[in-house]
Design a protein around this nucleic acid. Structure first.
Length: 483
RNA sequence: GCCCUCAUCGUCUAGUGGCCAAGGACGCCAGCCUUUCAAGCUGGAGAUCAGGGGUUCGAAUCCCCUUGGGGGCACCA
């Protein structure tokens, strides 16, 4: 048996949708907390809502956690496979007088709610079945109605919890109603399943989103009724969408796994999410996984909800992208390149060519997904662009034509096709032609890449190769001949 | 409607009574570097610390009220 001080935390998502940034931030903090304290991190799937269950989400949850490297020590446990525990607890609660069966129809509950709304009263169960006589009970039992089990909330008194982040929070019991523990299909509600499992799994600390704070008194009361010691609670600040509302599908690509598709690096995601509601000090922004584990503490978790700022994520991802070795960048970028390049580009892509291309893009990409659009021209046999671009640096068509003709001549004589040789030929040529490097290289850039913004000219020309450069240059001449 | 909770630059945040006429980061602007873009470097704009009352010699920091935001009040989690 582990000493009671040993840290055991869990991440307990429900498979009703793909996990979003907020969900995973909770997982991250729990994981960091466990790793920091040398404790255990468990994974539990809260699949107690048969109706809302979405097929395939468990795989996505596991995939997301693995992608981010949030490894778990136990589980995944599935609550749907543990129904007997909850049913047992419910029976015990009924036996001990802390819970009762309720036979009210959904229609009646709906009516009660409407009535309460109309009278501007707090919605909640009215306790109708709380004090049924034995005769009424057996009658209802015989009628074949499948009952739910409700917790018998104390009518008075208050419940206080000591939250590790919020401090002391007190609720009046009278504002809480007799909530459902066991549904009529025999499945538990979150409230029951969560406390039964946390107890059985010896969870020491419950880290969960702030939205659970107001349910916590119910949980405390349940622990008490079952005569169990509750874990410590830490309610994490929520992560909000740009409209400052709780993160949801409405906010677009918030599913964590989408970020992988969008070319974000797990280490950037981890670093970024850690800073959403937690900070090390007044200046540190970049922290490795190891540093996060070393420094993470609940004491430095903020109380305020955070709006997540995608721009900052992009910046941070760029930082991590540039930190990769060129080989690693090429390795990770290749699938994105392959996917993003038009089908007219011959496949499979030449890996040696890709390796040459990638260093030109690494410094410029904020996400791996940007790679194709950043460097597609390097893969095209013919480049397509607006011919006027050739004149964008300020030359007229005639001198542009002359310039390129000279360039073609001179490059013909170039012995080797590397960046310094090209520079040795071209830079003096600019002076010779009495052109500013800006104009001269600008013209060549458009002619060889079809763009006004591209990676450095000489390196680009080297990667393109002599043959293709000549081809592009020649085609630029042709384009301008009709101007 | 009731309950809970939060409140520092647009956003993420530092700040736990004096070191704060509020620091860092993203973004923005300018300059430098430079063949363009990006990166990098330097500088700048940007917060009467939501408002109002207290407490205190002294408050972003403590207390109260107001306002605003968020969350909850299901046989959903």
């Amino acid at each position: 048996m582990k000493p009671e001080t040993s840290v055991r935390v869990r991440f307990a998502p429900s498979p009703t949708g793909y996990p979003h940034l907020g969900n995973i931030r909770t997982a991250l903090f729990s994981w960091l907390f466990a790793r920091h304290h040398g404790g255990k991190f468990l994974l539990r799937i809260e699949d107690t809502d048969v109706a809302r269950k979405v097929e395939g989400t468990v795989d996505v949850i596991l995939d997301s956690l693995r992608w981010l490297g949030l490894d778990w020590d136990e589980g995944p446990y599935f609550q749907s496979e543990r129904l007997h525990y909850y049913q047992e607890a419910a029976s015990k609660l009924i036996e001990d007088g802390f819970a009762y069966k309720c036979y009210c129809s959904r229609e009646r509950l709906e009516m009660v709610r409407q009535e309460q709304m109309k009278r501007k009263q707090p919605p909640g169960y009215d306790g109708h079945c709380r004090n049924l006589t034995e005769q009424e009970k057996s009658q209802l039992e015989a009628s074949g109605i499948a009952p739910v089990v409700r917790f018998k909330m104390p009518l008075e008194g208050e419940t206080t919890l000591h939250d590790l982040i919020r401090g002391e929070v007190t609720f009046k019991n009278s504002v809480l109603s007799d909530f459902v523990l066991l549904k009529s299909d025999g499945y538990p509600t979150y409230h029951l399943a969560n406390i039964v499992d946390d107890h059985l799994m010896a969870i020491s600390h419950v880290l969960r989103a702030d939205e659970w704070l107001s349910s916590t008194p119910r949980h405390i009361l349940l622990y008490r009724a079952l005569n169990w010691t509750p874990p410590q609670f830490a309610h994490l600040p929520m992560i909000l969408g740009p409209d400052k509302a709780k993160l949801s599908k409405r906010h677009g690509a918030t599913n964590i796994i989408d970020y992988r598709e969008q070319g974000y690096l797990p280490q950037a995601m981890i670093n970024f999410m850690a800073l959403l509601g937690w900070s090390l000090d007044d200046k540190t922004e970049l922290l490795s996984r190891e540093e996060l584990i070393e420094h993470f503490s609940l004491g430095r978790v903020s109380k305020t909800a955070a709006v997540f700022n995608k721009r900052k994520l992009e910046w941070m991802n760029g930082v991590y992208l540039r930190q990769l070795s060129p080989e690693e960048f090429a390795r990770q970028g290749t699938p994105f390149l392959d996917r993003g390049l038009p089908s007219s580009v011959k496949r499979p892509l030449s890996s040696s060519y890709v390796r040459q291309v990638m260093p030109l893009l690494q410094e410029r990409a904020k996400t791996l997904a940007e790679i194709p659009q950043l460097g597609d021209f390097l893969f095209f046999d013919d480049i397509e662009y607006d011919t006027n671009l050739l004149l964008s640096s300020g030359l007229d068509a005639k001198s542009a034509i002359q310039t390129i003709e000279v360039v073609l001549q001179r490059l013909q004589t170039a012995k080797t096709w590397d960046a310094s040789s090209l520079e040795a030929v071209l830079r003096p040529l600019a002076a010779e032609l009495n052109l500013s490097t800006r104009k001269f290289f600008g013209l060549l850039r458009v002619a060889t890449t079809g763009r006004t913004a591209a990676p450095p000219l000489f390196q680009t020309m080297v990667v393109l190769g002599k043959e293709k450069c000549f081809k592009h240059l020649a085609s630029a001449l042709q384009r301008m001949s009709v101007l």
